[in-house]
């Protein structure tokens, strides 16, 4: 498998500057085929700008990029032939109904037969739960309904890549869940590249993520790798009994980096940061159990949430500046 078969999207040193701001700097991104790739970043980080550059709606100032091996600047129409895009705020042709809008979208890709195109539109309306409202003009649609129609139109052409800019932002919890379910179902057929602020959603469906901050790609890779990429591991331990002096004793172990303790309802909650995960796994619990002054009530390795990692990476990046 060559590079363009392995990665659907690839950018090299991509940058975009406007008159008064550097929107993107040296972005090197690789989105694996058939991945659900979460694209994260605070407001104004440059996520939408990058998506627009990928679709040929804006041009990079420096650098190159490709989708399916096609150049994003010179072969944009060929790329858009195989892409479905949901903008952050989807807009449609107001005087048309939802069904007419979908049919109109489909006709950018298909010439016929008309009955099959209509069947495809019906299928998409069904998928996003808009069948009953299919013949109403768009004018009366709520933000959430427009968002769902946006998801339907993005898929009408059987895209090899879906680019979704905040796909669940205007949806209620049920709508959000439905979108995540659709994304999960599409995983085996297509690659999904989506931006969002809802980190919980990313952790639920994504297999890879990238974090963009102030136009720079801060980190990128498989989600498990990013969640475990923090230096060393941290163990949570709940102890009963007299744990006085335990911190000093733990600090003497060569692989213990730091300990913290907080009392809680008669127990002491310890967090033990270690540098050697294997050694800690083998000996930490044994060491604690051997201490006659305490009883181990709980012992587990701390699991990081994406939100924690995200906040740490973004804040860390800002401190470096």
């Amino acid at each position: 498998m060559n590079q363009s078969e392995k990665f659907v999207i690839e950018t090299n040193g991509l940058g975009k500057s406007f008159a008064d701001a550097q929107a993107l700097q040296n972005v090197n991104l690789q989105v694996p085929r058939h991945s659900i790739f979460g694209f994260l970043g605070p407001n104004g980080a440059g996520k939408t700008t990058l998506m627009k550059i990928l679709l040929g709606l804006a041009r990079p100032t420096v650098g190159t990029g490709s989708i399916f091996g096609y150049d994003i600047v010179t072969e944009s129409v060929a790329i858009r032939e195989r892409v479905g895009y949901l903008p952050q705020q989807p807009h449609f042709i107001d005087h048309m109904t939802a069904r007419e809008n979908l049919f109109f979208t489909a006709r950018f890709f298909f010439s016929g037969p008309q009955s099959k195109i209509r069947a495809r539109c019906d299928e998409m309306l069904e998928l996003v739960g808009l069948t009953e409202k299919a013949d109403r003009p768009i004018k009366g649609f709520s933000g959430g309904e427009k968002q769902r129609l946006g998801i339907a139109q993005a898929q009408v052409n059987y895209p090899d890549l879906l680019i979704l800019d905040e796909p669940a932002s205007a949806l209620d919890p049920l709508g959000r869940q439905a979108v995540l379910d659709v994304m999960a179902r599409l995983r085996k057929h297509t690659t999904i590249f989506f931006s969002t602020h809802i980190l919980d959603d990313v952790q639920r469906v994504s297999d890879s993520v990238a974090i963009l901050n102030r136009g720079k790609l801060v980190t990128s890779g498989p989600i498990e790798q990013i969640l475990n990429s923090k230096e060393g591991a941290v163990y949570n331990v709940a102890l009963k009994g007299n744990s006085r002096g335990l911190g000093e004793r733990l600090a003497e172990l060569p692989w213990v980096v730091r300990t913290t303790m907080a009392p809680h309802n008669g127990t002491s909650i310890w967090q033990v940061s270690v540098s050697d995960e294997a050694a800690a796994e083998k000996d930490l619990l044994r060491y604690l159990l051997a201490d006659p002054a305490v009883t181990v009530a709980e012992f587990n390795r701390k699991k990081y949430e994406l939100e924690e990692v995200f906040m740490e990476i973004v804040k860390g990046d800002e401190n470096v500046r």
Partner: peptide
């Protein structure tokens, strides 16, 4: 995503890709 084989892909002149559909939309 593998396309439905019963649907015919649009074959339009490269430089004017999308013209017919947009023309129809404007006329409508």
């Amino acid at each position: 995503m593998s396309a439905n084989l019963e649907l015919q892909r649009l074959n339009e002149r490269k430089g004017l890709r999308g013209f017919a559909n947009l023309y129809q939309k404007e006329s409508q």
